[in-house]
Computed example of a mutant assay.
Amino acid sequence: MYPNLGYLFEDLFNIRLSGPFTILFAFQSFGFMMAMSFLAGAYTVYLELRRKEKRGLLQAVAKKTIVGTPASISDLLVNGVTGFILGFKLIEIFLDLKGFTDNPQEFILSSRGNLAGGVIVAALMVYLKYREKEKQRLSKPEEKTMLVWPRQMVGDITIIAAVSGLLGAKIFDSLEHLDSLVEDPIGTIFSFSGLAFYGGLIFGAIGVLYFAYRNKIPLLHMVDAAAPGLILAYGIGRIGCHVAGDGDWG
């Protein structure tokens, strides 16, 4: 079995990875397959929603938005914090690739990072956001109404399903292993392992249905459109379990 992509590539192509290619050892096979499952599921949901739209079963939703406003403090702050985290970690990974590939989880959750890299990337992202808003800025901001089709919300639906699903999977797994939670609450909660499918399904469904309700997507059509993608995503995820050597035969 292949716990990470490095072993998979070495076995498939009968090579020994070296240099920058050793970063493949940092990508866990199960995590990679989980990401693929979300992408495949999202594309399937997109196709189903588009099919329903063509048949006239779903309609566009009118949404009001204000255009021409300058960059707000929250916009700049979000971009700055995001840029700092990315630069802080990514630059350090580039400078110490071996340390990252040896234990990616410990590396990511640790305080290790490159301060200068974080500041530079944060400043760059703040500047780019400011410039973007300035180009769109109007002397007098206007309120516009746009028609948004359900298929155009698939990106938001996928993010909500992923975040709420992973949260639910972690909560249910922690409840199933209360002894580990009591013994090491921080390690158990922030560990990259330990996910309960039913928790992910329940929380993910609640998150997606709430989003559909808020955006006036009929719930029955949302469930119907999500069903094929859910089955496909679950299958790909189970393949990831098997490839990673979890001994999970379904």
Rank of each mutant, 00 (worst) to 15 (best):
G6A: 06
Y7A: 14
F9E: 00
R16E: 15
P20M: 08
P20L: 09
F21Y: 14
T22H: 10
T22R: 15
I23T: 08
Q28M: 01
Q28R: 02
F30S: 09
A40Q: 02
Y43N: 04
V45F: 11
L47M: 02
L47Y: 05
E53V: 14
L57H: 08
L58D: 01
Q59A: 13
V61H: 12
K63R: 15
K64D: 10
T65K: 15
T65S: 13
S72N: 09
I73E: 00
L76M: 13
L76V: 09
G80M: 07
G87F: 08
K89G: 03
I91D: 01
E92Y: 11
K98S: 14
G99I: 02
D102P: 00
E106N: 06
F107H: 15
L109I: 01
L115M: 14
G117K: 09
G118I: 06
V119I: 15
M125T: 10
Y127A: 07
K129F: 13
Y130D: 09
R137D: 08
K140P: 04
V148C: 14
W149H: 15
W149I: 00
Q152F: 11
Q152R: 13
M153E: 10
A161H: 03
A161N: 03
A161E: 02
A162P: 00
S164W: 10
L167K: 06
L167Y: 14
D173Q: 08
L175V: 05
H177Y: 09
S180E: 13
V182M: 03
E183N: 10
D184W: 04
G187D: 05
I189A: 08
F190V: 01
F192R: 12
G194E: 12
G199L: 07
G199Q: 05
G200R: 04
G204Q: 06
G204L: 07
I206T: 04
V208Y: 02
L209P: 01
A212K: 02
K216P: 00
P218C: 07
A225C: 05
L232D: 02
C241H: 13
V243W: 09
W249H: 05
